[in-house]
């Protein structure tokens, strides 16, 4: 049988992969994708806890699932705005590499 810890560990590994992507990659699109991976890792542990905490009616705790629903909605909005910024940036600078965007760098 799978335990709660298995799900949490898989979620942690997925979060670390996304985190490594944000740290290592220099392409802005791939950085946005890695952000999505991290958000989804958090969603997985939320759903695992939701299933783990069964209420007296014999149903999972749906509060966590509603929260995951909100996270998915906000993540979709975030991707749309992020990609629009990316297009605006590409128009101005013809690049998606974070190394080339260093005007604000001290």
């Amino acid at each position: 049988m799978t335990t709660l810890g298995d799900y949490l560990l898989v979620s942690g590994i997925l979060f670390s992969i996304g985190f490594a992507g944000v740290m290592l990659r220099r392409n802005l699109i791939v950085i946005l994708m890695s952000l999505e991976l991290m958000l989804n890792a958090a969603n997985l542990s939320l759903v695992a806890f939701s299933r783990f905490r069964v209420d007296p009616n014999g149903l999972p705790n749906y509060n966590a699932q509603v929260f995951v629903f909100f996270v998915i909605t906000v993540a979709a909005a975030e991707v749309a705005v992020g990609l629009a910024l990316l297009v605006a940036l590409f128009r101005a600078r013809q690049t998606t590499d974070v190394k080339d965007i260093s005007s604000l760098k001290f």
Binding site: M1, G5, L8, G12, S16, F52
Partner: peptide, 15 residues
């Protein structure tokens, strides 16, 4: 993360 999960007692229970 894996250290915290391994120390978490509830994490060893099945669903």
């Amino acid at each position: 993360i894996s250290f915290v999960v391994s120390r978490f007692q509830l994490a060893r229970q099945t669903f």
